[in-house]
Amino acid sequence: MKIKVRLFATLREGRGKEQMMEFTDTATPQAIFDRLDIPSADVAILLINGFDGKFDQPLKDGDTVSIFPPVGGG
């Protein structure tokens, strides 16, 4: 299945901001983190199709996954 992955803020460094990724039908957001080498601690907000998602939530073909790191500077 194809998943659109959107990255924000510092997660874009070395990874780009948006990409289509191909996964097996049982993939979860954790598979995206693993493939893009994103430590779980770097994920502050995870959205699946614009709504709050879980790391182990099964994904569907055509889903859009948005990943935000913690932003705490001031």
């Binding site: 924000f8 803020a9 510092t10 502050a44 907000i45 913690p70 932003v71 705490g72 500077g73 001031g74």
Partner: peptide
């Protein structure tokens, strides 16, 4: 909050709205 070229904000604990812990 701001970092690099990115930033974010919201209003928390206003009337019946969510708190910062609802985000993180």
């Amino acid at each position: 909050a701001a970092l690099g070229f990115s930033g974010q904000l919201s209003v928390y604990n206003y009337l019946d709205g969510p708190t910062y812990r609802c985000l993180m």
